[in-house]
């Protein structure tokens, strides 16, 4: 589904990703972990097409297509979804309007008909239960005045509505209390299908108690320094990142 080969990227001429190689197959959950500044959020943003980053080397192939050549909206229409670490507030655009616009764009890209507001309301009712969100959130402006937890739940709601094939969760657990974390994780788990895949970017092992990964990768200084199964996350929790950083620097 996704093959990343030697991916390098810079922001403001500073190299952040220094050759990332990673393969994600349908049905898999990959956790990308690492200390602050390791480049894990950059990886997530580069895959989603954030314009602030410049790809300077390597490739990323998604479903046989050159992902890096696609505009951000084309990636989304092709099924790539990024749950933002810091969801953006858009005062003046209601959550419902935003979601329906996104949903319809993605349907159009798939050659499907646009959904009417009534059917969309039914769809929303169903999806909102998944993240235990109140209907009032739909009439509010996108993320505006939302608490940290509400913003993250709103990200997962968008994910539930848009049904991506490749979901990238960028530190979705940061700033969440345990209840919100559980709600978010339940949402992600219930969206799991045999033909979609998830990349979970996180600093803490805690989230992985709820979203159990098939693979864990440790990112340090722009490179993957260790890959393993879910037990690697537990090892990181017990030992921290330092024991992996030393050889990486050497």
């Amino acid at each position: 589904m996704l093959e990343i080969e030697g991916l390098r990227a810079t922001v403001s001429d500073k190299e952040i990703l220094k050759g990332i190689t990673l393969t994600v197959k349908p049905g898999e959950i990959h956790a990308v972990m690492g200390p602050n500044g390791s480049g894990k959020s950059t990886l997530a943003q580069v895959l989603a097409g954030h314009p602030a980053y410049t790809v300077t080397g390597g490739t990323a192939t998604y479903d046989g297509q050159d992902l890096l050549a696609m505009d951000a909206e084309v990636r989304a229409q092709a099924g790539v979804f990024l749950a933002f670490q810091y969801p953006v507030e858009i005062p003046g655009v209601s959550n419902a309007y935003f979601l329906r616009a996104a949903y319809n764009e993605i349907r159009k890209a798939r050659g499907e008909e646009e959904i009417d507001p009534m059917s969309f309301a039914d769809l929303m009712d169903e999806k909102m239960k998944l993240v235990e969100m109140d209907g009032a959130m739909l009439t509010r402006s996108v993320n505006t005045g939302f608490s940290g937890g509400e913003k993250k739940r709103n990200e997962i709601l968008q994910m539930a509505v848009l049904e991506p094939r490749l979901a990238i969760l960028d530190e979705t657990d940061s700033g969440l209390d345990i209840d919100a974390l559980r709600i978010v994780a339940n949402g992600v788990n219930s969206l799991k299908r045999a033909n979609n895949a998830t990349i979970v970017v996180t600093h803490y092992q805690r989230l992985l108690n709820y979203i159990v990964p098939d693979y864990v990768h440790v990112l340090a200084n722009g490179r993957i320094v260790r890959s393993g199964g879910k037990e690697l996350a537990l090892e990181l929790e017990a030992k921290g990142y330092d024991w992996l950083l030393e050889p990486a620097l050497a």
Partner: peptide, 9 residues
């Protein structure tokens, strides 16, 4: 970027 990342052109 946020809007585009949701598929909005």
């Amino acid at each position: 970027f946020y809007m585009k990342s949701r598929g909005i052109n």
